[in-house]
């Protein structure tokens, strides 16, 4: 399976597959937005009142997480072996 160039995984691990997947996700988002317009949502405050509330909130939440991850990595990441007292980073830990 590993060396078979026609196998699914050989295709799935290529950058071309990544690009296809991105377009697939965009298509899925559009489909779900359309489905949300067609199917009535349960009666819930905020979520039912605002159009595409869940989609926009989830998009915003994910964006916030991605943006915040950048400054936080400098604040919260230390070299491997930090807790073992190995400041040079020669520790084998994966923490």
């Amino acid at each position: 399976m590993t060396n078979n160039k026609k196998s699914f995984w050989s295709w799935a691990l290529t950058p071309k597959a990544d690009a296809h997947m991105l377009w697939f996700i965009v298509g899925l988002c559009v489909l779900l937005l359309l489905a949300g317009l067609v199917v009535q949502t349960p009666d819930m405050p905020f979520i039912s009142d605002i159009p595409f509330a869940t989609a926009v909130s989830a998009f915003a939440a994910a964006l916030v997480a991605v943006v915040l991850a950048w400054p936080l990595q400098f604040l919260l990441r230390r070299r491997a072996g930090y807790y073992a007292g190995d400041e040079a980073g020669n520790g084998k830990d994966a923490s």
């Binding site: 989609a55 926009v56 939440a61 491997a80 994966a94």
Partner: peptide
Amino acid sequence: QGLAFSLLVFAAARAWGLLPRDEASALI
């Protein structure tokens, strides 16, 4: 919808290299 739209952001961020790199590190 929530899953798909968050997936869109993370997949795009990953594809465009906008997520922090995986590196051997300890987390505070």
